[in-house]
Structures are given as structure tokens and as C-alpha cells.
Amino acid sequence: METLKYRFEGRTAPSSRLDHVLVGVVSSGNLEVLIEPVPLDGAMEIEITTAARGFGQIWQAVLDDFAARHALKDVRITIHDVGATPAVVSLRLDQAVETLQEGGDA
């Protein structure tokens, strides 16, 4: 297992009152994304635990793209990965943000 940590400056606070959002499932080739609003001085922190070691540059590229599209502030994102492709990672992250912004009605 490998743990990767990233921090991005955010611009937009989540509009939801939910205390967390969880999407996805940890199983072969997939991942789970947990988003929690927490005070982080305007930052977004992302921590990944992955079974696929040595893909830090790919994670960085996927998360740079995500942070450019969703510059959330004061949120912690936790990802548990079992070898998901970058497309699945992006899909799950977008799904989690959409669920958070809709207040959990998705």
C-alpha cells in the first residue's frame, strides 16, 4: 500500500450542509471517495491510500485537473484505491462533488 497526500488552494466552499459524502466501493479495480467539509484555512486536502504503487505522477495529473475544475475550499477528500483507472478516479471525484453540492439528493 502507498499513501499519497496533496493540498490545493480552494476558492469555493461546499454549498451542502452534509457532514460527509461517500461514493464508490472498494473492490477489484475501483475506489471509494469520501468528502468531508472541515476547516482547512481555505485549502482542499486529498489523501490517497492505494494498492498500486509508483503512480504518483499520474495521481498528480488527475488531481491537478480535478482541482482546476472543482476548487473547493475547506474540504478533506480521502480516497481508497484498488487500482482504478484515471477515468474512474475522475468520474468518482466528480460524482462525490455533485452529491455534496446537491446536498446528498443524488
Rank of each mutant, 00 (worst) to 15 (best):
R92P: 02
A61H: 10
L63P: 12
A87Q: 13
W59H: 12
D65K: 09
H70E: 06
H70F: 14
A61R: 15
H80P: 00
V62P: 12
K73D: 02
A68L: 11
V62K: 06
R76T: 01
V75A: 13
D65W: 07
V88Y: 15
A71V: 11
A61F: 10
D64N: 15
R76G: 04
R92V: 01
A68H: 05
W59P: 11
L72D: 04
V75L: 12
D65G: 13
I77K: 08
I79Q: 04
L93I: 04
L93K: 01
H70T: 00
A87K: 09
V62I: 14
F66L: 08
V75F: 15
D65H: 11
H80Q: 07
K73L: 09
L91R: 04
A67F: 13
H70Q: 09
V62C: 14
S90T: 07
W59R: 06
H80K: 12
D65M: 03
S90K: 10
D64F: 08
A68C: 05
V88D: 06
G83S: 15
H70R: 08
V82L: 14
G83E: 05
A67C: 13
H70L: 05
A61L: 14
V62L: 10
A87R: 11
I79A: 06
G83D: 12
I79Y: 04
F66K: 02
F66T: 01
A61W: 03
D74L: 12
V62E: 14
K73E: 09
A68G: 11
D81S: 11
A71D: 07
L63F: 12
V82R: 14
V82E: 13
D65A: 12
V82K: 14
Q60V: 00
A68K: 11
D81W: 05
I77E: 08
A61G: 08
A61N: 09
V82P: 00
S90P: 03
Q60F: 07
L91T: 04
R69M: 12
D81P: 12
D65T: 08
R92D: 02
W59T: 03
A61V: 10
T78W: 05
V89G: 01
F66E: 04
R69I: 01
W59I: 03
A87C: 02
S90I: 02
L63S: 02
L93S: 08
D74M: 12
T78A: 09
A68S: 14
V62R: 06
V62Y: 05
D65N: 09
A68E: 13
A61C: 05
H80G: 01
D65I: 01
V62Q: 11
V62N: 06
A71W: 05
T78N: 08
V82Q: 15
L93W: 04
I77V: 15
T85K: 13
D74H: 07
K73Y: 00
W59D: 09
F66Y: 10
A61S: 15
P86V: 03
T85N: 13
A68F: 03
A67E: 07
D64L: 10
Q60R: 15
V88T: 07
K73F: 01
L93Q: 03
A84E: 02
L93H: 01
